[in-house]
Design a protein around this nucleic acid. Structure first.
Lengths: 381, 381
DNA sequence: TACTTATGTCTTGTCAATGGACAAAAGTAC
DNA sequence: GTACTTTTGTCCATTGACAAGACATAAGTA
């Protein structure tokens, strides 16, 4: 059913901006006009496709633009972080229609956290009365591929195998998708800023350290869903650094926001979290700046290998420590340790905010409006 | 043309062993019997498909087996290594019909080396009179994706951009495909021993050090074709080790066969190449064994990060140094430095011989008999 | 007003594939 | 040897998707 010219595929072409007029779809799909019209009619009556403005005329009648009807449903997305959470109600293009955020301790366990998130969701929904097509949640822990549950999270006590999908699914009557924050940040960054990149890596450095990989346009998870798990690689030379995972000398125990907070506190500058470290760095406190560069270099040691192995086009540093001093440390080691071949066309960037929420929206929209799913709904309806 | 049930796809199902009887193809493809018969007839008259033996009866007429006619053409494959080359004439399943090998210095330049390889090819062809469907060459240097030429090879003087495909293509009247040895070893290992693995890494440790990745069944090359290029990551702690790439402290300058040969020579045990080092290790010479374990640990440092990033199911150590002492060093560091999550289901193995030749054959066969290519030929013929 | 380009809507023909019906082949069970 | 089962081949009418045109509008520019 899902051929390269099925209705679902056509919708994908429009949705991803690869073809936004009937003319473009005609040449791109190779379909005849009659067939194309029939398909588009189906999509339009299903409310998936809408007509937009007009192209500039090239001498004759201007082409009418087609757009994915991104207003006929909304997505609920949430990013749960260690000490903080953020939720958004977006249209299907990821535009934010409403937003909430606030302190929320993931360590309090799933029900308090998800309860608060559900309250936020409901408050946002009260404002706009549109059906919810899906819920996407970003969590700071490992998620088994395809499951909506966290497994053996190091910093999420009480969450192990908690049925996040059931809790939220019953409450909002929509499919619930969950993934790890680094994965979703990578997905969000890819879709929002580097849709053409064949390989992109996001490294999140906050309380912990983790990487997300997007390869060939899809999140790469590895065989056990552990790909990108660089936070607990043991660095040589730090046998005394105790990590919250229980080991000694982990990268996260040396260079994460949590580790730097502890060091600053030792040095008489009480700091409790990665965002506290960030504040001190941004304020220009010398000790914090030195530590940021140091941490950047440590992470850079690992990223040099990562870049040599994966050879990505884009490397994004995100999270609390994603600021110029840290990134300078990363760059310094990266360019010293990795081959020019791997770094010459590499872009190293600082990530924006809201990446995880954006990735969660993308995950939901691409699942709910995948060509196969769209075709299925059109034929059963 | 290439639908999920086209003749080419059917051939692929048979070739990869996913469906080897008409019955199986029927249920698997969902085609009607008439259509399936027509497709199979096409493939049979084109000489691509042959009938094999019979399945065991399940109470009635036993199903006849279908097999890819792996005798109707042959593949010429060659693996060029630094000091040695190996060629094979194989059928389309990769079975060796003839074989040659001998010392051959890649540093002598493309024409002497390719000339000798072409002589071997011709000698082997004289024995069996079957058409050549393609030529596959494995080289110890970087190959631009999709090209049949080496670019800026560190250890192949005179080969830069040499048109290998033209030289051999004119001589044998068949398409010529070229790829890096690590990539082809990974492909060969995947196809021969781990066809189900979703992510497999081969690390070749001989004169140099390089890794090849097979992800989702295909060779992963990264954005610039540099993926797996771990030989010249600079290790901390070896500022004096001069590498043939011109840098200092590269992994290859510390732990490759070439580096160990130099160290052994310094210690009064003259050794010229990686295979010389191998001989001394296998002979149990204490200095060589100690060095092998040392080198294994150094490579293990890098592989710990690789395994954490890629989370492969299989890690194969191949090349001159692929022997138990070296691998013990790798394992020791790997399990100490990487997370259990990444290593618990990881198989660490020692690679067999002839992997690169096997990979070269697979590269050729899969290119020449890809569904798209098969469909194209059936329709034009 | 003439021309150009984009789009919608018919009709008709083509072609691939289905779905049976019928037949034959090649085993097993007794 | 006979009855039954299962696999395979073949023929043919029907279906359904699509292409290819023809024709008609729509909506701009020169």
């Amino acid at each position: 059913m899902t051929t390269p010219t099925s209705a679902g595929e056509l919708l994908r072409l429009v949705r991803t901006g690869q073809a936004t007029t009937r003319k473009a779809l005609l040449t791109r799909s190779g379909l005849s006009r009659s067939t194309l019209t029939a398909r588009l009619d189906l999509l339009q009556t299903a409310g998936l496709l809408a007509e937009g403005g007009q192209e500039d005329s090239t001498g004759g009648r201007p082409a009418r633009q087609l757009r994915f009807d991104d207003r006929h449903a909304v997505v609920l997305a949430a990013s749960v972080d260690t000490m903080h959470a953020e939720v958004a109600l977006t249209d299907l293009s990821g535009r934010r229609l409403a937003h909430r955020e606030g302190p929320l301790r993931v360590a309090d366990g799933p029900e308090p956290v998800l309860g608060r998130i559900a309250e936020w969701f409901e408050a946002m929904l009260a404002e706009a009365d549109v059906p919810v097509c899906g819920v996407g949640i970003s969590v700071p822990g490992p998620v088994e591929p395809g499951q909506a549950r966290v497994t053996q999270p190091p910093i999420m006590p009480g969450w192990d195998h908690y049925p996040i999908d059931e809790y939220l699914g019953e409450r909002f009557g929509a499919p619930v998708l969950v993934d790890n924050d680094a994965n979703l940040m990578a997905l969000g960054e890819h879709r929002a800023r580097h849709p053409e990149s064949r390989a992109l890596v996001v490294v999140k450095v906050s309380t912990g350290i983790g990487a997300g990989l997007v390869i060939g346009g899809e999140v790469y998870r590895g065989v056990d869903g552990g790909a990108g798990d660089i936070g607990h690689i043991r660095l040589p030379g730090f046998p005394e650094a105790r990590c919250m995972c229980g080991s000694l000398g982990c990268l996260a125990a040396v260079a994460s926001g949590g580790a730097l907070a502890a060091r600053l506190t030792e040095q008489g500058l009480p700091t409790t979290s990665g965002s506290g470290v960030r504040d001190r760095i941004l304020a220009g406190e010398p000790a914090a700046v030195r530590l940021a560069e140091f941490a950047g270099r440590q992470v850079g040691e690992v990223l040099a290998t990562l870049v040599s192995v994966v050879n990505p086009g884009v490397l994004v540093i995100a999270g609390d420590l994603a600021e110029p001093h840290f990134v300078a440390g990363v760059r310094e080691v990266l360019y010293r340790r990795a081959l020019p071949r791997a770094t010459q066309s590499l872009k190293v960037e600082i990530g924006g905010t809201g990446l995880a929420v954006g990735g969660a929206v993308a995950m939901v929209v691409e699942s709910v409006f995948s060509p196969a799913e769209v075709d299925r709904r059109l034929t059963t309806a």
